[in-house]
Write a protein that binds this DNA or RNA. Structure first.
Lengths: 117, 117
DNA sequence: ACCTATTTGTCCGTATGTATG
DNA sequence: CCATACATACGGACAAATAGG
């Protein structure tokens, strides 16, 4: 098993697991389009509950790193090929947010609201 | 009880509950600094599981609408007084994202990344 | 300084639903 | 039709932070 968790740590298991997946993504062991082991497999291998694994996977999904779908599993998304204008707009927005002392959670909430409008 | 859910709906209970809280926030029934009823209370009143309520509360916390802390409960944050420049930057960003066919999860992930940098 | 009750956080277990292949 | 896999919901248990006496 690629991933590791330390049950004696004070860091929540699902956070440890999510961090472990992020590491593998960063080092390129896991690449875009590849499929992560099913939650049940990971749970069995690490001897933790399937819900704990699912919570870690959902955290990664919320970050846009993986795509979760029923019956299909967890697939690494390709966050590549992003338009440079978008990245510029992101930087400008964050500058504005910092100036207004607006937190990241509020900011992303605003984004979601505007996006669904 | 202020909040309502419909168990026969296909919409998840925790989403219904979170939406119900958002409505009360929007109409001003709940205001900044006020405390939401404890998860246990809500669960008992609506006859749903406490975990379902907690999940709804955590969803609201992720949106920056409430502040959750152990032993203290759920308190409405003050997300008022947002600078109009920020709102303009948000709209500009979302336009750019739509043009590039960038999903909302990817977008918020980019925001978080830039914000923590 | 201590104790107790309250409240959210985490984790495990189980069951059922739903989409995919 | 069937197996797989995530989604939701319920139940129980203990830990940790907070508030108040």
């Amino acid at each position: 098993m690629l991933f590791r968790v330390d049950p004696t740590s004070t860091v929540p298991l699902f956070d440890q697991l999510a961090a472990s997946v992020r590491t593998e993504l960063a080092r390129g062991t896991l690449r875009a389009g590849e499929r992560l082991p099913s939650a049940r497999e990971v749970a069995a291998a690490l001897d933790i509950n399937i819900h704990t694994v699912l919570k870690a996977y959902q955290e990664l999904r919320d970050e846009g790193l993986i795509d979760l779908r029923r019956g299909r599993g967890a697939v690494v998304t390709e966050s590549a090929g992003l338009p440079p204008e978008l990245l510029a707009a992101v930087r400008a927005l964050v500058v504005e947010a910092r100036r207004g002392e607006v937190g990241v959670t509020t900011l992303t909430a605003l984004i979601r609201e505007e996006y669904s409008a």
